[in-house]
């Protein structure tokens, strides 16, 4: 590491010397913008650790007189948070893996198998990703009641597995059409069947794209609002975001309690984001593959 004579390091140093006031100004502006973007989060943290009395005397922008966990305790006493957390983890995990798996086998038939009418199927699946959930919700609501899945996590799991898989199929079929044909032909000559080729050749080749899909499906499903709010009205089946928003409707609740609840509700996605940050930044571009 200690190679001051190496050309790249020298170039970097030179670059550093030549920074103009203009460059610092641009960096400063970007930093100010970052602070503005973060401000709502900072306010949330600041007020989640205040006592209710401290909040009403000092207001939302004052520094807390003392740090307390009262607001968190209050929130936990009003909402079965561990239960909501479990529901969210269960729903998002199952949807992430089942949705990706379903997309994988469907895209296999379209991207590799090139079944007749592939283009039509893809167009229809694309429509499925665009259709507003309002146009499905009432029939889905009755469907869930008929099948006994209303107020259970399973209604939401089934619905989002299909909806995410529709998007995944669209994305994966275009990725699969780039898999070299020689690879598949070689396997075919060796006598491998379709199912074997999918598992032994396609899956390993596509692993990076698939992991991006799993991460995205997990976060998207975790944050879903409309369908869960309608189908999961019972506290025992609610997800983390829905539990928070149901509580908000009741007016007598302290702001600090809601702050603590919000902080608890965003923590899982934040942790997930930090762990998979690299995958995500690759992944957002995956959405632009055509």
């Amino acid at each position: 590491m200690s190679a001051p004579t190496a050309p790249p390091a020298a170039a970097a140093r030179q670059n550093r010397v030549s920074r103009t006031p203009m460059q610092w100004l641009v960096l400063g502006l970007c930093a100010v913008f970052a602070v503005v973007m973060l401000a709502p989060f900072l306010l949330l943290v600041l007020n989640a650790f205040k006592s209710g009395a401290d909040y009403s005397s000092g207001g939302p922008v004052a520094w807390p007189k003392s740090f307390t966990l009262d607001a968190f305790r209050d929130y936990m006493s009003m909402v079965d948070f561990p239960r909501a957390l479990w529901n969210s983890i269960l729903i998002s995990t199952v949807v992430a893996f089942a949705g990706t798996g379903l997309a994988l086998i469907s895209a296999y038939a379209i991207g590799i198998g090139r079944v007749k009418g592939s283009a039509v199927i893809l167009a229809v699946l694309l429509l499925a990703t665009m259709v507003p959930h309002e146009a499905l919700i009432y029939p889905l609501f009755y469907g869930a009641q008929e099948t006994g899945t209303f107020n259970t996590v399973w209604s939401v799991i089934i619905i989002f597995t299909v909806l995410q898989a529709a998007f995944g199929t669209y994305l994966l079929s275009s990725v699969m059409s780039t898999v070299p044909k020689e690879l598949l032909d070689a396997a075919g000559i060796d006598g491998a069947g379709r199912w074997t080729i999918l598992w032994k050749i396609i899956l390993p080749v596509l692993r990076p794209t698939l992991s991006v899909l799993v991460v995205f499906f997990f976060i998207w499903t975790w944050n879903e609002f409309y369908i869960p709010v309608v189908l999961l009205s019972d506290a025992s089946s609610q997800t983390v975001p829905i539990a928070l928003s149901t509580l908000r409707g009741q007016h007598s609740i302290d702001i600090t309690t809601l702050n603590a609840g919000s902080l608890l509700s965003l923590l899982p996605t934040l942790v997930f984001f930090l762990i998979f940050q690299r995958t995500l930044s690759h992944g957002v571009t995956a959405g632009s593959i055509k």
């Binding site: 296999y108 038939a109 198998g113 259709v131 499905l136 029939p139 469907g143 299909v162 909806l163 529709a166």
Partner: peptide
């Protein structure tokens, strides 16, 4: 890879899912 029809087996799950979750609800709506 000659038997083209076998591929539809792979599409069956998503077609059933799409019909149940998107197509029928949309038409009913």
């Amino acid at each position: 890879m000659r038997n083209k029809r076998g591929w539809w087996l792979y599409l069956l799950p998503i077609l059933i899912g799409f019909t149940a979750i998107v197509l029928i609800p949309f038409v009913v709506n």
